[in-house]
């Protein structure tokens, strides 16, 4: 276990280093931030001064070295635009995105698992076909279009739910969150649903496939031959067997839901990290983009670790590090 964690830590550092290099070179190639930051009527002298103060006059390798050195001491640079530490900007918006992502995954699981289970247990029925057709729509219709339709129907058409912003937040266990107020929850429903639809389809299809693979196995028949109820067989034996792969996929998806909440946050004007990153890319605010990508990379690695640990808890046959 300790060996496993140490090995993971070293892998994490290697990955972060590689990502930082790619990000830095990529951003350098995109364009010169000074062109965008400075007003059109700035003189050449002002321009040169600004470039020097941002450190953009140094060669790429020097800039990267400086970035790495600062990063190792926990400083990911100051935003060109806000003149604040970029990590602080990102973390300030992180709760809103996390809240959205967790709500979306929650919806996807709470609806997707039972629907997938039903579809897997009743193949060929009309209900199964309806569920599967619905799930195809779920992941083949473009996400942004689904978002617009949600707004059109539930905000504009029916007027039930607000379509933009985070609404009023309240404090719950010392954390600023939408869950604390009714207004906050109302604001959360549409964007969370939008973000959930794709994952919902995924969970349904995955669960169904797993159930259909597991039901013909001998241990299901042996369960019946022992006189267990169908409820016990499906609810305990089958559910626990398929839990490990499903948790793995959902865990991986949490990372992607956080990273790709960008579209949903843009549509619903959700004040999360995704919106910040889009704005920062447009303004070539390099430190914020770099910091964002490193934070997301770190999140992915962290989630993978948690998933691996969960997997061993769910499936006793799996041992960490491949050794017993």
């Amino acid at each position: 276990m300790t060996v496993f964690l140490i090995r993971r830590l070293l892998q994490t550092l290697a990955v972060l280093f590689a990502v930082s290099l790619v990000v830095f070179v990529g951003l350098y190639a995109v364009g010169n931030p000074a062109d965008i930051l400075l007003p059109d009527d700035a003189t050449e002298v002002e321009r040169q001064a600004a470039i020097r103060s941002l450190g953009l006059d140094q060669p790429l390798i020097v800039q990267y070295g400086l970035f790495l050195k600062n990063a190792l001491s926990g400083d990911l640079g100051r935003s060109f635009v806000y003149n604040e530490p970029s990590i602080k900007l990102i973390l300030a918006r992180f709760p809103a995105t996390l809240e959205l992502a967790l709500s979306a995954l929650f919806i996807a699981m709470v609806l997707g698992f039972p629907l997938g289970l039903y579809a897997g247990l009743h193949p060929g029925t009309r209900m199964e076909r309806a569920i599967m057709t619905g799930s195809i729509l779920g992941f083949s219709l473009p996400n942004f279009w689904q978002g617009l339709m949600l707004i059109l129907i539930f905000s504009i058409g029916l007027g039930w739910l607000p379509s933009s912003g985070r609404g009023q937040t309240g404090s719950l266990f010392g954390i600023e969150t939408s869950f604390a107020t009714w207004d906050g929850i109302r604001h959360l429903i549409l964007p969370a649903t939008n973000l959930a639809l794709f994952k919902l389809a995924l969970v349904i299809r995955l669960t169904r496939a797993q159930v259909r693979e597991t039901m013909p196995l001998d241990f299901v028949k042996f369960g019946r031959a022992r006189g267990l109820t169908e409820r016990r067989i499906v609810g305990v034996h089958v559910a626990k067997t398929i839990a490990a792969p499903i948790v793995t996929v959902i865990g991986m998806e949490l990372g992607s839901v956080i990273a790709f909440a960008v579209v949903t946050e843009s549509i619903f004007a959700w004040p999360g990290m995704g919106k910040l990153i889009i704005d920062s890319i447009n303004r070539l605010d390099r430190p914020v983009v770099a910091a964002y990508l490193l934070v997301i990379t770190f999140l992915f690695i962290l989630i993978n670790l948690v998933v691996d640990l969960l997997y061993t808890a769910l499936d006793p046959r799996v041992r960490l590090g491949g050794k017993s």
């Binding site: 196995l217 001998d218 241990f219 028949k221 042996f222 369960g223 031959a225 022992r226 305990v236 034996h237 626990k240 067997t241 490990a244 769910l314 499936d315 006793p316 046959r317």
Partner: peptide, 16 residues
């Protein structure tokens, strides 16, 4: 009426 199956690798639920 009880039953014993052919393949003992498959008859017991692996995760329980």
């Amino acid at each position: 009426i009880a039953m014993v199956f052919q393949d003992p690798m498959m008859t017991l639920t692996p995760v329980l």
